[in-house]
Design a binder for these strands. Structure first.
Lengths: 192, 192
DNA sequence: GATATTTCTTGTCCTGGTTCAATGCCCAGG
DNA sequence: CCTGGGCATTGAACCAGGACAAGAAATATC
């Protein structure tokens, strides 16, 4: 059950067997069916979840009901609303499973406890956030500077397995275009 | 010289006088004239700079020469290409002073040294990155989901001092619209 | 296996924003 | 004091992508 996450963590930093044991003993396993809302806007997010198996998205909704998918997360990713989790403030996004999922969870308390017992992990979490930041930066850039077609091509290159797993209109909401237009882009591309 | 940055850091975490001394002794002061490129794309970023005074922007350029301003940074902010700095990989952005600046700089080596001597700061830097991430998330959302006019109104509410300090076309490139259209949005708003 | 529901496609019309060009403005340098 | 180069503004023509509607395809439900 823990091989995957241990491999994930030890890619960042070397840990002894005891440290890994502490780490694993603190994680809480949870199986969740698909279409479950893990976090609702304006709730405080009380988890950071490592995805052992499954697929999750988090998204915003604006006052007109317009939905923006912020991220798809699959195996070997973490999901959370970090700001809400960290500062115990209400989240401004939703987190929802798209498939049946197996998760390994931390709460604010257990994360605190973990970092106290294995301070080296502080670095792992910082690197995680940083990587996230880099991804988001390049995404913002593309959202602003490129056409719908380029965005879609870039998306399937970067996440080739996602299109087979999630409905197309979610991808449209990730790219910031209408589902109809995504469909048109796709037919245009397939004609080449 | 260090009051400002010390205040900034101790807002996050309590530090003893000795710890602050270590911190300050490691920082390197640097004055830089305006219009200086601090980091050029494809260089490795070797600094994290705290802005004691001045104004800086970082931006991407795509293959067609299209420019996107990722961030304006003023007093009490840090600038860097964190991914490049951390992983010693080539940057994909530029960092440029817009005014004469006074900076307090860390290099990868001195940051490492600092974190070793004052491990508590690890947390400060993580929180910094997290805050950055939260800002970027909400920005991506707005870039995708809102009109040019909304983006501009949101911008001046969030950063009321910036418009007086930087040229308008930089703001347009931050908002992801053309300078001409920003001008039209502004005249429209002023007529109300 | 039939039906209901959700998802995807296709077409038409419409709009927010771009591009290009012309004009005026500000101010830095001689 | 003039002059030249970047900025901002305005207008006209254009286009990428949105909104809406209607049908087709795929999935879920019983």
């Amino acid at each position: 059950m823990f091989e995957q996450i241990n491999h994930h963590v030890t890619k960042c930093i070397a840990l002894s067997a005891e440290e890994l044991d502490i780490f694993n003993s603190i994680l809480v396993y949870k199986a969740v069916p698909k279409k479950t809302i893990l976090l609702h806007e304006s709730e405080v997010c009380n988890f950071e979840a490592y995805i052992n198996k499954g697929c999750i998205r988090n998204y915003y909704i604006d006052e007109n009901g317009f939905e923006v998918t912020l991220q798809f997360a699959i195996e070997d990713w973490w999901v959370s609303d970090i700001a809400s989790f960290q500062n115990h403030e209400p989240a401004n996004m939703f987190i929802e499973t798209l498939e049946d999922c197996e998760l390994l969870m931390l709460s604010p308390q257990t994360k605190e406890e973990l970092l106290e017992k294995v301070p080296k992990l502080e670095r792992v979490f910082r690197l995680m956030v940083q990587r996230n930041l880099a991804v988001l930066q390049s995404r913002l850039f593309k959202a602003i500077a490129t056409s719908a077609q380029e965005k879609y091509i870039d998306f399937i290159n970067r996440y080739p397995t996602i299109p087979q797993r999630v409905a197309q209109h979610y991808i449209a909401s990730y790219l910031g275009i209408s589902p109809e237009f995504l469909s048109k882009v796709r037919t245009k591309l397939s004609k080449k």
